[in-house]
């Protein structure tokens, strides 16, 4: 078995119009910039994929990564907890103009919905959001004298994730707080595509250190020196080309 992919274009080739795509990262940490840019590159060359539903904690920052995807009009709906950032102009303008739909989900509920999707649990109860506008229309139940809101699993066609080291079987380690949603999204997507700084042969990762077991991963692609969203934005970058 060898899950390594030859290049970024091959890694994103299966994503089609209307699909749901989970994108890892919390702000810029863990954002798979190169995979996202490869997807944008395909869209600019072919007009596809479009009308995507994207799951991410945020809504992108500046004019690179997820923000650039939104800016180019590839995203029909965003499911996220905090669509604000230091430079939020891209999402804000499209949202206020009615060009992108938003499903706002509390951050812990978002994480648990993704985990549940990957774990085969169709629904669960959480205290989060009980009695608030974000619980409107959801079933409520009482357990041990407290009220809880029923939330449903979240699954996706694809996950695009950034990890640190991957072996050819898809076992992964992450780097510091860039882990965040990565392990959950790998579980919840039909196909999890992961960019790693280094691909190693099986045995190259200590089994005690594996964070995401390879069963949750369908493809790994090596990006040796990955870009950091924060660094790109501080340099005023835009994808593709210079900021407008």
């Amino acid at each position: 078995m060898d899950k390594s992919l030859p290049d970024l274009a091959a890694a994103v080739a299966g994503i089609e119009d209307g699909m749901s795509v989970m994108i890892g990262g919390f702000g810029g940490s863990g954002a798979p910039i190169e995979l996202i840019h490869a997807l944008i590159g395909r869209f600019l060359a072919t007009g596809h994929p479009r009308d995507l539903t994207v799951v991410n904690n945020n809504s992108g920052n500046g004019h690179v990564g997820l923000a650039a995807m939104i800016e180019h009009g590839m995203v029909a709906k965003l499911i996220c907890s905090f669509p604000r950032s230091a430079d939020p102009v891209v999402f804000t303008e499209q949202y206020l103009a009615g060009r992108i739909a938003l499903e706002l989900v509390p951050q812990g509920t978002l994480a648990e919905r993704i985990r549940a999707g990957g774990a085969g649990i169709p629904a669960f109860y959480t205290p989060t959001s009980y009695g608030t506008d974000l619980a409107a229309g959801k079933p409520v139940a009482e357990f041990e004298g407290r009220h809880y809101v029923q939330e449903r699993w979240l699954k996706a066609d694809y996950a695009l994730v950034k990890a640190e080291t991957g072996d050819r079987l898809g076992n992964l380690t992450y780097r510091m707080a860039a882990r965040n949603f990565g392990p959950l999204m790998c579980m919840a997507a039909r196909k999890a595509i992961v960019q790693v700084a280094r691909i190693v042969d099986p045995g190259g990762i200590d089994p005690e250190a594996v964070v995401t077991p390879g069963i949750f991963v369908q493809g790994v692609v090596e990006v040796a020196d990955p870009a950091q969203e924060e660094a790109l934005n501080r340099a005023g970058a835009a994808y593709p080309g210079a900021a407008a």
Partner: peptide, 13 residues
């Protein structure tokens, strides 16, 4: 404007 909640609704519980 743009609504955003983050982790606040989780943290209070």
């Amino acid at each position: 404007g743009v609504p955003a909640v983050g982790g606040a609704m989780d943290l209070v519980h």
